[in-house]
């Protein structure tokens, strides 16, 4: 379990939820769901956001360092996981190959059966 409040969580709740009241209200941000998705896409990828010049977090030293650390850690984890997955697949494949070749070899029972045949 991990307990954290990400910016995406915050955007989702504040933009997408809360009491909607119609009537004399002068402005209500239209299509908030679309807006949430749009903003979340921006914040989902720090690199992409920097590419297109969205760098609001750079003024905030906490967010700046943390965002970089998170992106780096994410990359490390993805590489680790990919190699683990590959290793797992190879292990299963090897076990299957060993079992298959063991099955192909005539065992003592098979030899006996063959010899029993007329």
């Amino acid at each position: 379990m991990s307990q954290s409040t990400s910016l995406a969580d915050l955007l989702e709740r504040v933009l997408d939820k809360g009491v909607v009241i119609a009537g004399d209200i002068t402005v209500l941000v239209a299509d908030v769901e679309l807006l949430t998705i749009k903003i979340r896409l921006l914040v989902a990828s720090v690199d992409k956001a920097m590419e297109i010049g969205v760098n609001w977090w750079q003024d905030d030293p906490y967010l700046n360092i943390r965002a970089k650390q998170l992106v780096e850690r994410n990359r490390e984890l993805e590489t680790e996981l990919a190699s683990l997955r590959q290793a797992n697949l190879e292990t299963i494949q090897t076990r299957l190959d060993v079992l298959e070749s063991a099955l192909k070899k005539p065992g003592p029972r098979d030899s006996r059966r063959k010899s029993e045949k007329p």
Binding site: V14, G18, V20, I21, I25, V27, L28, V29, V32
Partner: peptide, 11 residues
């Protein structure tokens, strides 16, 4: 508190 939706502006 009952939070209002973001963008609730009254004149």
């Amino acid at each position: 508190i009952i939070p209002f939706k973001f963008g609730a502006v009254f004149s």
